[in-house]
Design a protein around this nucleic acid. Structure first.
Length: 661
RNA sequence: GCCUGGGUAGCUCAGUGGUAGAGCAGCGCACUUGUAAUGCGCAGGCCGUGGGUUCAAUCCCCACCCCAGGCUCCA
């Protein structure tokens, strides 16, 4: 009996066949798990197994829908470009893609997406079944004799590479004799066969809520030395509503794009005269930046960090000693010759902080020593990876290096994780997740040091009670590390803070401290950045707040708008009082109708707009129009407003969103 | 670096082988406004840069630069 027959016969499971009129497969069974393994519904159940059905709205179901849609896309491309070679086409977190090589070196253009979609809809309408077949390697190779990428995959199966783990492209290794599985779609005009591990939906009629999104380049096996392929990205969902929601989220993300808001709110730009990845901050952007940096300095100084300051250029020999030159010179700016020595722009702060530490002998009494700097570094990022403020060539890290004794390490890490969370929580983030990266295959240092450091990191995470996952072997070659991720207002994850226990640098620089035994000992060294880079953190905040910064970060906190010219004197008085109270305030004198001036203030996302008119002059009040509220409050005593605003600002609260237009 | 798309006024964008367009922003004048767009006018352009084709190029061709989306990378 197959899963499908089981479904049809089981009176306890409602079997909705295929898709309803709306094309909704949320509650439709697409596949099943046999003893935990995803399989086609047509799979024969040959033993007493645990069966779980998978419907369209589950994570697995969506993934299967997307994978099958990718498959249909490949079929459509093959139909339109006979001779097209197809490589891999997995489902991804938000959709799917498929990589192709078109005959005669042809390339997709955006206009082709519509043609491909149209052909895909025809294939879906034909309701072609996905029929699974299995072959041994030689037979499989015969089926794909003109498909070099499929042949490579089949060969990899033969060589027992762990193909299954590399993606969804692939094939299966069944016991001793490797077998490849293929899926065949019989169409009205043509049939299509693809090497694929599966499972798939039973037939193309189960699909339909999809959209092709963009064309991109990609390399075969992700290797830039190999063939460049053409990738098409798309997404698919179980229902029109779910697809629509996703597309709306994309739109929302576009509206929040910090590059767009950076221009709209006049925060920064990237002059081509200066060069890619090198921003200039305009007054309002620089003000936000200054507030962030002041906040960072203040919390560090009050948490026992010592400020240091180091230069932006240095002799290359410093980075030869630290090892960076050997490992990372590709990411460093090229050298400059000066007076016979070779200099480089600073790519990392740590060697310089080490020089501060090693400037004289250190006692255990001085430890832990926490050296902090808003340190600007320059890294040569390839032009293709630059992305607004989130990826630049000159950035400022809120960087610190902690030198401590082995005994102090666990305690330092624990309080450090607490400190990180405290700082990030200030910005309204509350959904954190950490990743603990452990010793990679290639590493330096003693395994016992690695174990001690890794255990200390793990227990710091446990103490902080934040969820984390362990990334085995993902650590840097010189350090195990914790990365902290947060979720922003529209549910996107950002990696921000990093904590690393460096197991190489103290030895390279011969660091020591004198212990209470009067002997020299080697200190542990921890690298850590909370924001990561100030620039990138600003990008995150702009998108998180959609440009509507909380009061304490807003470049303009209060905008005073007189109703008419006769209220100018009182408005100026109000402005003066606001400034005296430390509120960043501006005034919008009348030369336009009141509504227009209020609208402009709203578009600039000013937290408070104070409208003052005749009534206010007499009673020393203001009309308070709060961002995010369409209900202005009339007749508020000026001093009451000042007290409220000063209090909200000092508590770093207030991050209401704008009313959407 | 590679693939795809793009670069026209400060911003968002339309457009054509024959003197360059809109909305918003800016400036001026009028309007004096109680909570999301007052009216009229003016100004604003090496149509990314360089070369080529052409009687004529912002438009077609070539090269380069920059931006975006990916691939790759991210100490």
């Amino acid at each position: 009996m197959t899963g499908r027959e089981l479904l049809e016969n089981d009176s306890e499971i409602e079997y909705s066949s295929k898709v309803d009129k709306q094309g909704d497969t949320s509650d439709v069974v697409l596949a099943m798990e046999i003893d935990g393994e995803l399989s086609d519904l047509a799979t024969a159940i040959t033993h007493d197994a645990t069966i779980k059905f998978v419907n369209g709205s589950s994570v697995e179901g969506r993934s299967i829908l997307r994978h099958s849609t990718a498959h249909v896309m490949a079929q459509a491309v093959r139909d339109i470009w006979p001779g097209a070679k197809y490589a891999i086409g997995p489902a991804t977190e938000d959709g799917f893609y498929y990589d192709f090589e078109l005959p005669g070196g042809a390339h997709f253009t955006d206009a082709d997406l519509g043609r491909i979609e149209k052909r895909m809809r025809e294939i879906i309408k034909e309701d072609q079944s996905f029929a699974r077949e299995e072959y041994d390697l030689a037979e499989g190779a015969g089926l794909f004799s003109d498909q070099q990428y499929k042949l490579e995959i089949i060969q990899a199966v033969g060589e027992n590479e762990s193909v299954v783990a590399t993606g969804d492209e692939s094939a299966v290794v069944n016991g001793r004799n490797p077998v490849v599985s293929v899926y065949r779609n019989m169409g009205v005009h043509s049939d299509f066969i693809d090497l694929c591990r599966g499972p798939h939906v039973p037939s193309t009629g189960y699909l339909g809520n999809f959209k092709l999104l963009r064309v991109a380049g990609s390399y075969w096996r992700g290797d830039e030395n190999r063939q460049q392929l053409q990738r098409i990205y798309g997404t698919a969902f179980e229902s029109p509503d779910a697809l629509d929601d996703y597309l709306k989220r994309l739109e929302e993300a576009e509206k929040r794009d910090h590059r767009r808001l950076g221009t709209e709110l006049d925060l920064f730009h990237f002059p081509s005269e200066i060069g890619g990845g090198l921003p200039v901050f305009h007054p309002k952007g620089a003000l936000i930046r200054t507030i962030l940096e002041d906040f960072s300095r203040q919390v560090h100084l009050s948490s026992g960090y010592l400020p240091v300051w180091t230069p932006h250029v240095t002799k290359s020999t410093l980075y030869a000693k630290s090892g960076h030159l050997e490992w990372y010179s590709d990411s460093m700016y090229p050298p400059m010759e000066m007076e016979g020595a070779e200099y480089r722009m600073k790519p990392m702060n740590c060697p310089m902080h080490i020089l501060v530490y090693s400037s004289r002998s250190r006692s255990y009494r001085e430890l832990p020593m926490r050296l902090f700097e808003l340190g600007t570094v320059y890294r040569f990022e390839r032009s293709g990876v630059l992305h607004g403020l989130a990826r630049v060539r000159g950035l400022t890290q809120d960087d610190a290096h902690i030198f401590c004794t082995p005994d102090q390490l666990p305690g330092e890490l624990e309080s450090l994780v607490g400190f990180v969370l405290e700082v990030l929580t200030t910005f309204g983030f509350d959904d954190f997740e950490a990743e603990l990266s452990t010793r990679p295959e290639k590493f330096v240092g003693d395994i016992s040091d690695w174990d001690l450091a890794t255990d200390a990191l793990a227990s710091a995470l446990s103490a902080a009670e934040i969820p984390y996952r362990v990334a085995e072997g993902e650590g840097a070659f010189y350090a195990p590390k914790i990365d902290i991720h947060l979720t922003d207002a529209i549910g996107r994850r950002w990696q921000v803070s990093t904590l690393q226990v460096d197991l190489q640098m103290p030895a390279r620089f011969g660091l020591s401290y004198v212990g209470d035994d009067n002997e020299k000992h080697r200190p542990y060294m921890v690298h850590r950045a909370l924001f990561g880079s100030v620039e990138r953190f600003m990008a995150l905040l702009i998108e998180h707040y959609a440009g509507a910064f909380p009061l304490w970060l807003s470049p303009v906190q209060v905008l005073v708008v007189p109703v008419s010219e006769s209220h100018h004197d009182y408005s100026e008085e109000v402005l003066l009082r606001l400034k005296e109270a430390g509120l960043r305030s501006d005034i919008y004198l009348a030369d336009e109708p009141l509504g227009a001036r209020i609208r402009k203030g709203k578009l600039e996302k000013v937290p408070y707009i104070l409208v003052v008119g005749g009534e206010d002059v007499d009673s020393r009040t203001v009309g308070v129009n709060r961002r995010g509220s369409s209900q202005p409050q009339r007749g508020v005593p000026l001093e009451d407003f000042v007290a409220e605003a000063v209090s909200v600002a000092s508590e770093r609260g207030g991050s209401e969103q704008d009313r959407p237009e």
